[in-house]
Amino acid sequence: MSSNMIIGQYVPGNSVIHHLDPRTKITIIFFFVLIVFFANSVMSYGLLTVFSLGSALSTRIPVKYLVKGLTPVWFLILFTFILHLFVTKEGTVLFSILTLDVYSGGLIQGLSLSLRFFLLILVTSLLTLTTTPIAITDAIEDMLGPLKKFRFPVHELALMMSISLRFIPTLMQETEKISKAQASRGVDFKTGPIKDRVKAIVPLLVPLFVSAFKRAEELAMAMEARGYQGGEGRSKLRKLQISRLDIYSFIVFGLVIFGLFLTRS
């Protein structure tokens, strides 16, 4: 299951977008999400589509991988389209299916909303596809930095995220081990009515939680032994750096925004 779903997965690569500073990517995506809602003409949608598809192609992640990875999202997009097609009753009647009339307004609404939805998903998933989770964490820590003044625990949040990232594979391996151990004792996770399967999860979760807490306790001890005393006075090995590529990207994106407002009707 997890191998099909690309949202949240990192694909190593060497493209320009892979090399951008994660802060640049987050900023651009943030503003992209905002400006998508300003598009209202064929031209403006075209511009944003070209920008998004161009970015996606430039990552050199195989298109097939992207298309397949978005499978669950395709259904949502289709659903959005059909819903609006039938629900919106504006403009002229184009044709009718059974007793339902399809209006021109509905077609336009359906197309533009599902396109918007598609662009949003595509561009936001480019972030995680081209950026390691730890780089995203670093970027978030850096960008939320100003909130420290308001006593917002920025460093702690970032540390929490990075430790979760560190332990996800470990806990996955452990889950597998426990589920095999329980399966060998006759617990059946895969067949039978839902109720039984849910019940079968309990002997999996309990040992997993117990061990996770034990790990947490030992990890805290190990961190303290290595001199951890919070974010104060800490230096950092990983460093974020804005390069020329980032400047160019901002310029290109600025032009897209400019173009968008020119092509709006």
């Binding site: 030992e218 961190m223 800490r234 950092k236 090995l237 990983r238």
Partner: peptide, 26 residues
């Protein structure tokens, strides 16, 4: 326990952890 004292997401991050705590320059 080898797993429960590994803080970093990679080997180099883990080796750096103690040094970061003591504020050593990069």
């Amino acid at each position: 326990n080898p797993d429960n004292q590994f803080v970093g997401t990679t080997v180099r991050d883990d080796v750096a952890f103690g040094m970061e705590n003591h504020g050593l320059p990069r």
